[in-house]
Simulated assay, not measured.
Amino acid sequence: MAAALDMAQDAPPGGVTAAPLALDCRDVTVRFMSERRAVTALEGVSLSLESGSFLTLLGPSGCGKSTLLRVVADIVQPSAGSVSVLGRTPAQARQNRDIGFVFQDASLLPWRNAIDNVRLPLEVGGRRELPAGAMRPQDLLDLVGLSGWEKALPHELSGGMRQRVAIARALLGGPRLLLMDEPFGALDEITRDRLNEELLRIWAETGTTIIFVTHSIYEAAFLGQKVLMLAARPGRVRELVAVSLPEPRRLAVRESPEFVALAARLRALLETC
């Protein structure tokens, strides 16, 4: 009876079950062993993220931003603590194809054209068919603005276009969580700005939860609903900063007093990390 009472108290009004958090990290610690000593990449990181959110990760080199993404993606196992992705373990979420990952390097196969690179996960993941209602490779190329480039090989595409293909590939199958590890870091400023706006459009159209790692204060502030600032040695949460900027965002917002104040705050935090 007590257990039933507790469940009833926890249930939302109307008996509707609340959607699981996109991410729930509790006291996550990651230690690596080098030849000489143990290195703590993350220590006691706790974070909750609602579905449909856009979170940017910012911090100095060596603070564990990429490591945290890899823990969420089930690539790195935590030494302590727990991680829940959409109410499942990271391994279950990965097996269910709930997670997409975009790296800094687009990593396209040079002998495959754009649409065949997008199709690749269907060939290597053991699932030949897409889930019902999922966007097709052609739909995804249209979504990222590459209509007409389906047959182009990677060497025929610019750096920004290759990253668009990588994003389309990561979205194949409709993942509910998209992890992005400095995907625009190697691009020129003009291309990077354009892709920042494009990514916000894609996020709005798909409703996918996004966690985005960057070293750029301006990129973190422009893209994120919240900015998670990590401190280094060991990697730990310094502060979670809410972003209150008008929607939909355009690059011109970076000239507003609100954006300038936000960037200054993030810079001040970064200097203490």
Rank of each mutant, 00 (worst) to 15 (best):
L195Y: 05
L178P: 01
V30M: 08
V237P: 07
K151Y: 05
S107H: 12
V85Y: 01
N96M: 14
V253L: 11
R26A: 15
P20E: 15
L171C: 07
L143A: 11
R250Q: 05
V144A: 02
L178W: 07
R128N: 05
P248S: 15
L230S: 13
P137H: 12
L200T: 01
D188K: 12
A152L: 00
M180P: 13
A134S: 14
M135E: 12
R97S: 03
A170R: 02
R236A: 15
G207M: 02
R169C: 11
A22E: 14
D27R: 14
G64Y: 09
E50Q: 13
A73Y: 10
A11L: 13
E239T: 09
G145Y: 01
A19C: 04
L141R: 06
S158W: 00
L171R: 09
A73W: 09
R88I: 00
L120C: 01
G14M: 06
D74T: 03
A114Q: 01
S216Y: 06
E50W: 05
A152E: 00
A4V: 08
L58E: 06
R265D: 11
L21S: 09
R94F: 13
L240C: 09
T56I: 13
D181C: 07
L58Y: 06
M33A: 08
L266D: 00
N113H: 12
T208I: 10
A4Q: 12
K65D: 15
Q77E: 12
T209L: 08
R70W: 06
T56D: 11
G62I: 00
V83A: 07
S66H: 08
L240H: 11
L55C: 09
A106L: 05
I190Y: 06
L157Y: 00
A4S: 10
L269R: 01
R233I: 01
S34P: 06
I202T: 07
G81I: 08
P183A: 12
A268Y: 00
E35D: 14
H155W: 12
D193F: 03
V260S: 06
G100R: 08
V144W: 08
V102H: 01
A19G: 11
P131F: 03
L86V: 02
P110V: 00
K151G: 11
L187W: 12
R233N: 11
A114E: 02
A168V: 13
R136C: 02
E50H: 10
S84I: 01
K151F: 01
R265Q: 13
G173I: 02
A106C: 10
L42S: 03
V118F: 09
S53C: 12
R233W: 02
G52S: 08
V16W: 10
G62F: 01
S256T: 13
L251V: 08
R176I: 10
T29G: 09
T206S: 03
L187I: 08
V253W: 07
L86S: 05
Y218S: 10
D142L: 03
T29D: 06
T29R: 04
L109M: 15
L178V: 04
R88Q: 14
L269A: 02
E43G: 07
A22L: 08
G235L: 11
A261C: 02
